[in-house]
């Protein structure tokens, strides 16, 4: 009776996403062995975000889903960013009055 059946994603899409995820995993381990200074963590997170997006978009079908589903995902991620960003306004500037960029507010530093 379902008059608009589920969007059937071709199997080759899944295989392609799977291979990409495998490659990125190897890549992220390899990247960690090179000294990029503070950019190691940036690169690691960029790769993780790409991997996560692939899973969300294709394995979880968000790419083919309704606007509402997309909105829910975006709302969740935005709230998470609010939590991170505004907590960091504190953590990253606590030392500023003492003229340091270290996170001096944390006890023990």
């Amino acid at each position: 009776m379902s008059n608009h059946p589920d969007h059937i994603v071709p199997v080759r899409v899944y295989i392609f996403v799977f291979l990409a995820l495998m490659v990125f995993t190897v890549l992220t381990v390899y990247a960690a062995t090179i000294d990029l200074g503070r950019y190691n963590i940036v690169l690691a997170l960029v790769i993780a975000c790409i991997k996560a997006s692939l899973v969300i978009m294709f394995f979880m079908h968000v790419y083919y889903s309704s606007k509402l589903t997309k909105a829910i995902v975006i709302a969740g991620l935005c709230t998470l960013m609010i939590l991170f960003f505004f907590t960091l306004t504190d953590l990253a500037t606590r030392g500023a009055l003492q003229g340091t960029t270290d996170w001096v507010g944390v006890p023990g530093r």
Partner: peptide
């Protein structure tokens, strides 16, 4: 996310 954050710190 857990994998790079926990396992891959300063691997170099």
């Amino acid at each position: 996310f857990l994998f790079p954050l926990l396992y891959l710190i300063d691997l170099h």
